[in-house]
Simulated assay, not measured.
Amino acid sequence: MYAQRQAAAPVSAMTFEAMVEQVRYDGAYPTHDRAEQAVRHVMAGLGRQLIGDERVALAARLPLEAALELTAQVPRTEPLTGFDFVSDLAARTGGTPATARWDAGIVFAVLRRLTGDDLISSVLAQLPSGYALLFGRAELAPTG
Rank of each mutant, 00 (worst) to 15 (best):
A138E: 11
A125S: 14
A3K: 15
E54P: 09
Q73R: 15
H32A: 09
R112S: 12
L134C: 02
G95R: 09
A60H: 06
R61I: 07
V107A: 08
E21C: 01
P142M: 01
G94E: 08
Q4Y: 07
T81D: 10
R34Q: 14
R48W: 03
V74N: 13
F16A: 06
H41W: 12
L127R: 04
P79H: 10
R137H: 11
E17K: 02
A90D: 09
F83H: 10
R113T: 12
L62V: 08
R92H: 07
E36I: 07
V23M: 09
F16L: 10
A141E: 15
L114V: 01
V11N: 03
G82A: 05
P79A: 11
V23S: 00
R137L: 08
A67V: 04
S12M: 01
T143R: 14
Y29C: 00
L119I: 10
R92G: 14
A35C: 11
R48G: 13
L89D: 07
G94A: 05
H41G: 00
T96A: 13
L114Q: 11
F108A: 01
I51Y: 14
I120K: 05
A67D: 09
T71Y: 08
R76Q: 09
A66F: 09
V74Q: 15
A44H: 07
V123K: 13
Y29N: 06
M43S: 02
D117G: 09
L134W: 08
P75I: 05
R92P: 01
L124G: 08
G136D: 04
Y2T: 12
Q49C: 10
F85G: 11
R92T: 03
R24Q: 10
L80K: 03
A67L: 00
A72V: 05
Q6K: 15
D88P: 03
E78F: 01
L89G: 00
S87M: 07
M1G: 15
A132V: 04
P128N: 09
H41R: 01
D33C: 01
G116I: 00
R113I: 06
G82T: 03
E69Q: 12
L70T: 02
F108W: 10
M19G: 01
L127M: 06
T143N: 06
T93P: 02
Q22Y: 05
W102L: 14
G105N: 04
L111T: 12
D103F: 07
V110E: 03
G136N: 11
L64G: 12
V74F: 04
Q73N: 14
R112E: 09
A141D: 09
T115Q: 02
A90G: 06
R101N: 10
L46H: 01
G94S: 10
A72T: 12
W102D: 11
